[in-house]
Amino acid sequence: MKNRLRVLRAERDWSQADLAQRLEVSRQSVNAIETGKFDPSLPLAFKLARLFEATIEEIFTDEGKA
């Protein structure tokens, strides 16, 4: 799933490791989500949204949407 994580991270000058620490997950998890290889669960998506003070839709692109 496409997302704006890289941009949101860059805006805050956070590395993948910084974000991983804040989310309490591994850096490889952040990398997999960021590159669209792994879709996070709803709880993790909400955690990301809270962290970036955005909605889930503002972070992730709904590719099924026409």
């Binding site: 309490e24 997950v25 591994s26 490889q28 998890s29 997999a32 989500i33 792994f38 996070p40 669960s41 993790l44």
Partner: peptide, 8 residues
Amino acid sequence: EKDEFVRN
């Protein structure tokens, strides 16, 4: 395992 990606 709390990390869902690693668990996956």
